[in-house]
């Protein structure tokens, strides 16, 4: 299901100002809906439950760059056209979810430590660096 909220004029202006893209923003639409981004993410990430609050952070980081935002629009609206730009974007989105990190102003940042998908894919209930069970739990392979 795709639900696209229609942004108020004020939201559009604020989003544009925040990205510094008021004058160069593509005319099609000013925001990518979180629901669309989550649906795309789910399709890429497969079996895992994805948290929209974390997704909102990734989406904000991606759409801060006008070119990436245009590619994301295209991927959501027209699907995968097989281009390198789309392939790169899909890889970026997957790395965000798996590692819990994203880029902001060219610098790496953390969206979530404990809810990064890598821990789940490795069969861990809890990530490394946290208490993960009673002493000796590690003597048998994981059951999940």
């Amino acid at each position: 299901m795709t639900v696209r909220a229609s942004p108020t004029r004020r939201q559009v202006i604020l989003a544009s100002v925040a990205t510094g893209a008021l004058l160069v923003a593509p005319p099609a639409k000013a925001q990518v809906a979180l629901a669309d981004f989550m649906a795309l993410s789910q399709q890429l990430a497969g079996p895992w439950d994805l948290d929209p609050d974390i997704g909102a952070t990734y989406l904000r980081a991606l759409t801060a760059d006008p070119t990436t935002r245009a590619t994301l629009d295209s991927l959501i609206d027209q699907g995968d056209d097989g281009s390198d730009a789309i392939a790169d974007l899909k890889r970026t989105i997957l790395k965000q979810w798996y590692l819990g990190t994203y880029e902001e102003d060219g610098q790496p940042a953390v969206a979530t430590f404990e809810r990064a998908l890598m821990w789940r894919a490795l069969g861990f209930e809890q990530p490394i660096g946290t208490c993960r069970g009673l002493t000796g739990y590690w003597s048998e392979p994981p059951t999940n």
């Binding site: 497969g46 079996p47 890889r91 790395k95 798996y98 590692l99 890598m118 894919a121």
Partner: peptide, 19 residues
Amino acid sequence: INGFIDQGLEGEALSQAIR
């Protein structure tokens, strides 16, 4: 994980390859 993603793996195939 980055290596598998760069190879183009997605979805169930990606998480299985990692594990």
